[in-house]
């Protein structure tokens, strides 16, 4: 079973749009949305949810004020300045629990925290594992790991050939959790100075974790000179460019219609995406 993750570094380059279209072309795939703090793939896949699970991770630490003798030990050991005179600020607290373990009055309690939910759903393109992190919560990396484990279990159960993973932006913990041990990463970039800058950083991350990559240049004709620079950079670094998708407002129209581009139109854009999928299959030896 192969696992292909779609990432970009920079947000808004077209990860989800591309993932949804590939999902519609892939046939026997399991789909996973690992952008758990701003998940959007469900909007295009319109899933029917079969199972919902709570995501429990980390600790809520609270102080029972009547028991507190005011010794101040908790305040002095806390590295996150989470302790105030009146209790513990949940946004500063990292949930390490050191205060609870050393409080001489046993006035500090630790409880498991529910940070969100994850779902197993049916879509017309196959089973779909997705999640929702509560706003402001931590542990998005652990929720990603949870989604990926569920996707692997599902792919085994369904005898699916491939898991398509819509990744998060950035290079931090949710991204690292999304790409680790993947067969390959498709990097969706755009020919803008920010797109190129962020692509180069994400390529350093994939190299660090030994994940093979291919590049897709989205909206390539917005700046043909920058596109040529990306292609030259890719050639120098032996990274295959698997597709170039032109800029077209039909992509925005398809989003507004909540459909994947290849479902919405049969024009040069959807042809480019079909070509992209063929190239990816060759590059990562996907059946």
């Amino acid at each position: 079973m192969k696992q292909l993750v779609i990432i970009s570094g920079k947000g808004g380059t077209g990860k989800t749009t591309v993932t949804a279209s590939l999902a519609s072309l892939a046939g026997n795939a399991v789909l996973a949305d690992c952008d758990v703090d701003a998940a959007d793939l469900h909007i295009l896949l319109q899933p029917y949810t079969i199972l919902e699970h709570p995501f429990i991770s980390g600790k809520i630490v609270t102080k029972n004020m009547p028991l507190c003798s005011g010794c101040g030990l908790c305040i002095s050991v806390c590295r996150f300045d989470a302790h105030t005179q009146t209790g513990i600020n949940p946004y500063d607290c990292e949930g390490c629990g050191l205060c609870a373990r050393i409080c001489p009055e046993n006035a500090i309690e630790m409880r498991d925290k529910t940070c969100g939910s994850w779902f197993i759903s049916d879509t017309k393109y196959g089973k779909f594992i997705h999640a929702r992190l509560h706003p402001g919560e931590e542990n998005s990396g652990k929720l990603v790991t949870c989604v990926r484990k569920a996707a692997i279990n599902m792919a085994e159960k369904e005898s699916a050939d491939i898991i398509l993973i819509d990744g998060p932006p950035g290079i931090g913990c949710p991204l690292i959790a999304s790409i680790s041990s993947c067969t390959g990463a498709l990097i969706v970039t755009e020919p803008t100075v920010a797109g190129i800058h962020d692509m180069k950083r994400i390529l350093e991350v994939t190299a660090h974790f030994n994940v093979p990559c291919s590049i897709c240049i989205n909206k390539w004709d917005i700046n043909p000179d920058n596109t040529a620079d990306i292609e030259a950079f890719a050639a120098q670094n032996n990274i295959p460019v698997s597709g170039k998708i032109p800029f077209d407002t039909c992509v925005i129209d398809s989003l507004a219609a909540k459909k994947t581009v290849v479902e919405y139109t049969d024009n040069h854009i959807s042809q480019q995406i079909r070509f992209l999928w063929q190239q990816i299959k060759t590059i990562f030896s996907i059946n």
Binding site: V36, G136, E137, S140, P169, G170, G172
Partner: peptide, 10 residues
Amino acid sequence: APPGTSCPVV
């Protein structure tokens, strides 16, 4: 700010 709604944004 970074994108998202989790701890870096908080």
